[in-house]
Design a protein around this nucleic acid. Structure first.
Lengths: 112, 112
DNA sequence: CCTCTATTCAACCATCCGGTTAATCAACCG
DNA sequence: CGGTTGATTAACCGGATGGTTGAATAGAGG
């Protein structure tokens, strides 16, 4: 599966997004991450594997703990992807678009 | 399923993202959208249903055609969501963060 | 060495997903 | 009306997904 699809698929789960939100406050172990959820530790471990394969987290080693750390690069990528469509929701961008089109058509006297 | 999960799930498929890219050039019928893909019309129809339920497209009615139109609001939402994490990938934002923390700690004389 | 803790692996289950083909619905058109 | 075109619905299939329980691995520590 392509990179972008992996990232979107990983984010399409509230539990995994919640885990990312927790990691924004700093590194955490699997047990710490699992604590707020009513599901088994193994299920959380699976979620972490999905996040890891999407490049959204990395895991270290500290004795028997596997601290997880947020990796934001894929989030930058999906933000940039969505920004392609900004002109469809942003009024000001529409006007900028019009402005750029005007420049392309040729500057008028008062613009020079 | 919650709104954000629906949108992310809808975007986690290259065919559907490709359909959105096509719709950025304007409305299109199901047949027109299906043309570039090596899959059946019915499969495309299913993709469109997924996109519609995620709020990423709306469909009109023109005789026997069902023109599809891009709806960008959910894209704005996911962009905004990802922006929460900007400080983890943007150096400049880090410095802004430091600056805001300084203000919170207490303005100095020269800042007043 | 034994045991406790942290975590992963394995097997299983129900459901969902992306695709297929066949049938159906809706609207125009001769 | 009957036929053609555009699109959706239905039933099905294989593989992925999210959860479970139970067993296995890895390291700390008495």
């Amino acid at each position: 599966m392509d990179r972008l699809s992996l990232v979107f698929a990983a984010l399409a789960d509230p539990t995994r997004r919640s885990i990312l939100a927790r990691l924004a406050d700093g590194e955490a172990t699997v047990n710490q991450l699992a604590e707020p959820f009513p599901i088994s530790l193994q299920a959380v471990s699976k979620h972490l594997k999905v996040l890891e394969q999407a490049g959204l987290i990395t895991r270290g080693r500290d004795a028997q703990w596997r601290p997880c750390r947020l990796e934001a690069a894929p989030l930058r990528d999906i933000s940039a992807w969505a920004e392609q469509y900004r002109r469809f929701w942003d009024e000001r961008y529409d006007r900028l678009d019009d402005y750029l089109r005007t420049l392309q058509t040729g500057p008028t006297a008062e613009e020079k």
